[in-house]
Nucleic acid binder design. Structure first.
Lengths: 122, 122
DNA sequence: CAGCATCCTGCGTGATACTG
DNA sequence: CAGTATCACGCAGGATGCTG
């Protein structure tokens, strides 16, 4: 099955949204990329901030997340094909358009999931 | 009350958000509840709309989703304790405050995930 | 540095049967 | 009607080692 309809026309945007951002890191990666391009290692380190207790993210996992984001059309992978390797990821226009949505999520989450923390912006 | 807060202070609202809406149906359930209270069976049937191909949602799954939503403080379960059973679920103020966020998600999803499918509606 | 190959484990999801 | 009890399964996510 599957076949021609590799990308289904979702009648339910919410379901599509959930699939798109499935995974622990996708939203945070997108958010981190809003400032500009980032290298693989930068993204990786960025995901560790605020999570002292946790371990390093498995390369396999991060790799898959990034591929999925690229496949969704949210980010673009730029491989400089140099040695040592240098790869940068940046948001596509579609990805950029999604940032405000994450912003809304964060705003709501800051109020209802983290107390009356008013001072955060970022 | 130091740790009286049953809900942890998440430094990352996004991560907390993801946990909160984890599961295939939570967002859709919340969205469906915005019009008012709904009974268990109504929610169940509502989740089938627009998903002709799929089968009925397993009671076990829906039950867990609803419990999780209640535990998150997004919905309230009202049990009428009658025979035959009648249980209604409705949004808490916190749950209602979350509806606009879903609205943003849907708006974005309708534009970028459903193509130029203008038949958006619900 | 930016991954890929392999193994392993927990749990989310589904299907079915049963109950107050 | 509104669930609970079991069984089964795929896959996300982690851990390690290796490579161009």
């Amino acid at each position: 099955m599957g076949r021609a309809t590799s990308k289904r026309m979702h009648r339910c945007p919410v379901a599509a949204f959930q699939k798109m951002i499935a995974g622990k890191y996708k939203l945070r990666i997108l958010w981190d990329l809003q400032d500009g391009q980032r290298r693989y290692g930068e993204i990786r380190s960025g995901l560790l901030r605020g999570t002292e207790g946790t371990r390093e993210i498995a390369p396999r996992v991060l790799s898959r997340e990034l591929k999925a984001l690229a496949a969704s059309g949210l980010v673009i992978r730029k491989d400089y094909a140099v040695m040592p390797p240098k790869v940068e990821y940046r948001l596509t226009p579609m990805g950029k358009s999604f940032i405000p949505v994450i912003g809304e999520i964060r705003k709501w989450g800051a109020r209802y999931l983290a107390g009356e923390n008013l001072s955060l912006a970022s």
